[in-house]
Structure formats: structure tokens, C-alpha cells
């Protein structure tokens, strides 16, 4: 028996494979450190968002974390959905629509918690609708959510109407004082509520991914749908639930952004779907599903935001998008190389 088993023993992982493994798990943190270091040595004198040429000061970091709140809120749920092999291109529109709903509620005198809760429920509904299209009507995810991208955005624009560009104070109506403070004013460690909500959402999703059936079934669904179904897993239910979670997260992201900007802008979520995809891919999530970690996407979001905000100063505006693309290309390439090394045993 012993001799027989030894023939099947896996070859001991070579050093290269072990290194690749380590890199896959931790590279995102190195990238974060590298980006922060790079921006710290760059000359930021000209820009007053950062005080006097030093990126690593409290004010600028708080600033970045503040504006990052929407993306940080969204990244985790988006990761889980992509792990299950699905995608939601309507997140930006869900954000916009939620922002408008939230602002409308606030400006019409609905108290904070009620407005907050109603908007979250609305987000869940939008997510469920996506899930319905994809799972029950069996529309390809990209197409279904492209449709709702347009649909939800149309609804947001309709809600604003009347020639104004956004829901905001003016014309006899005024935003309540709490509206702005949620996304802007420091509470704990000088960081606003919106940021702490993003952290809480991420924590919940990290636990969900590692400790619950949902996390495991999402990976199984994305990794091998047939095997998942043959194992008796109701993959449709899992996918709908994930769309709902993405919807709620997008609603929270919408609340964070509208609060930060003090208005309900029907275009505020535009382009968010692309940023979310980039963040999740940067975090090492496989586009084909099965693979990906919530926490790494969170870090990926921090990197993107640090770069975006940091570059406002160092890099001329018309180069910024290009630099962002280059960073992502590098990330994608190294990711590919690492996983190739890992499997080449």
C-alpha cells in the first residue's frame, strides 16, 4: 500500500511554483505599496489637494479614502458575481438611479435611516431584476445588463426631469444637513461614515466568501457549472442572490457618491462598470469565473483610486487614462505569467 501510494505522491512543489504561489496571493499588496511609494516621491508641489509635495500625509490619504468609498463598496460584491462566472454592466446605472432616489427622498423630508433603507431595497430590486433576466429568461449576462444599463439610467434621468441636471438644493427646496455629512464629514479616524460602510460591506463579503455556502457555491458555479448542478446545487438561486447583493452594494455606492457630491446626479455612476471590472481584474479575479478574492479587489480599488487621484497632480490630464491602462496591462500580463508558472509543474 505504501509503495503504491508513493507512486501517486504529487511532485514536491518546485521553488518556482512556490514563488508563483506566493506572488499570486500577495502581489496586489506589493503593487499597492509600490504605487504609494511612487506617488510619494513624485513632486506634488503644484497641487494643493496634497499638502506641499507629500503624498503620505493624513489629509491626502483621508481625501483619497473619502472619494474611494463608492468603488470600495462595490468591489466586493462585483468580485463574488464574477467568481460565479457572471457580470453586471448595469452597476453604474444602478448607482445613478439609487443616488437620484436617495436625493429625492432626502430633499422631500424623509429622514436619514428611512431614505437609506428605501434606497437599499430599491437597489436589491434592480439587482433581482438583472438576476431574473439572466437566470429565468436566460439572456446572456452581458446583453441583459447592457439593456438594464440603459433602462436604469433612463429611469434616473426621468426622475430628475424639468431641465435641471440633478437633484440638489435650490428652487425653494433644500437638502437636509445630514445629507452631506454621511459621505464627507469625518467620524471615526476623521473618515466619513460612507468609508466605514464600505469597510463593513467588504468584511461581511470576505466572511461570506470564506465561511458560507454562498461563497463556496459561487466558486463552484463559476468553476464548473455542470459539476455544480450535478452536485445538487441550485446555481440559479445562487446567481440571483449574487445579483441582488451587487444591486444593494451599487445602491450603497450611489448613496456614498451623492452624499459626497451633495446632489442626486443621474449620471454620477457613468463608467462605473468599467472601473469595477478593472479593479476586480487587477485583484486577480478570473474573467471566466471560479477564481477571485473579495479582499484583493478591495486593495485593487485602493490602488486604482490612489493612482487616479495621485495622477491628477503628476501626470497631465490627457495622459492619465493611458497610464491607468498601462498599469492594468502590466497587472494582467503578470497575472497571466504567474498562473502559467503555477500550473507548469
Amino acid at each position: 500500500m505504501m509503495s503504491q501510494s508513493s507512486t501517486l505522491a504529487q511532485p514536491p512543489a518546485t521553488r518556482g511554483v512556490r514563488v508563483a504561489h506566493f506572488l499570486r496571493n500577495y502581489y496586489i499588496y506589493f503593487v499597492l505599496v509600490a504605487v504609494v511609494a511612487l506617488l510619494s516621491v513624485a513632486n506634488l508641489d503644484k497641487f494643493d489637494l496634497f499638502e506641499r509635495g507629500n503624498f503620505l500625509n493624513e489629509k491626502s490619504i483621508i481625501n483619497i479614502l473619502r472619494v474611494s468609498a463608492p468603488l470600495l463598496t462595490l468591489a466586493g460584491a462585483f468580485t463574488l458575481l464574477m467568481v460565479s462566472g457572471y457580470i453586471d454592466l448595469s452597476v453604474g446605472s444602478t448607482m445613478s438611479l439609487s443616488a437620484v432616489i436617495y436625493a429625492l427622498l432626502a430633499i422631500n423630508g424623509v429622514p436619514f435611516l428611512a431614505a437609506f433603507a428605501i434606497t437599499m431595497v430599491a437597489g436589491a430590486g434592480l439587482g433581482a431584476f438583472n438576476g431574473f433576466l439572466v437566470v429565468r429568461l436566460k439572456i446572456t449576462p452581458v446583453i441583459a445588463t447592457l439593456i438594464t444599463l440603459s433602462l436604469f439610467k433612463g429611469m434616473a434621468l426621468l426622475l430628475v426631469q424639468d431641465g435641471v441636471s440633478a437633484i440638489k438644493s435650490g428652487g425653494g427646496q433644500k437638502m437636509p444637513g445630514w445629507f452631506n455629512s454621511y459621505g464627507r464629514e469625518g467620524t471615526l479616524l476623521n473618515l466619513p461614515m460612507a468609508f466605514w460602510v464600505a469597510v463593513a460591506v467588504t468584511l461581511v463579503l470576505v466572511i461570506a466568501q470564506n465561511r458560507t455556502l454562498l461563497g463556496k457555491y459561487a466558486a463552484a458555479t463559476g468553476g464548473n457549472p455542470t459539476a455544480a448542478k450535478l452536485s445538487g446545487i441550485n446555481t440559479g438561486k445562487i446567481v440571483i442572490l449574487l445579483y441582488v447583493i451587487v444591486g444593494v452594494s451599487a445602491a450603497l455606492a450611489g448613496i456614498a457618491r451623492s452624499s459626497f457630491m451633495s446632489l442626486g446626479d443621474p449620471l454620477s455612476g457613468d463608467g462605473m462598470e468599467l472601473t469595477a471590472i478593472l479593479v476586480v481584474l487587477l485583484g486577480g479575479t478570473a474573467f471566466s469565473g471560479g477564481e477571485g478574492r473579495v479582499l484583493r479587489s478591495f486593495v485593487g480599488a485602493l490602488i486604482i483610486m490612489a493612482l487616479t487621484v495621485g495622477m491628477l497632480t503628476v501626470v497631465p490630464a490627457y495622459y492619465q487614462t493611458l497610464v491607468l491602462g498601462a498599469v492594468l496591462l502590466a497587472a494582467a500580463a503578470s497575472n497571466h505569467l504567474i498562473s502559467r508558472k503555477e500550473t507548469a509543474s
Partner: peptide, 8 residues
């Protein structure tokens, strides 16, 4: 055809 989930 193998029905295992590689990622788990």
C-alpha cells in the same frame, strides 16, 4: 468528461 471544480 471530468466534473470537478478546479478552483476548489
Amino acid at each position: 468528461e471530468l466534473h470537478v471544480v478546479d478552483e476548489l
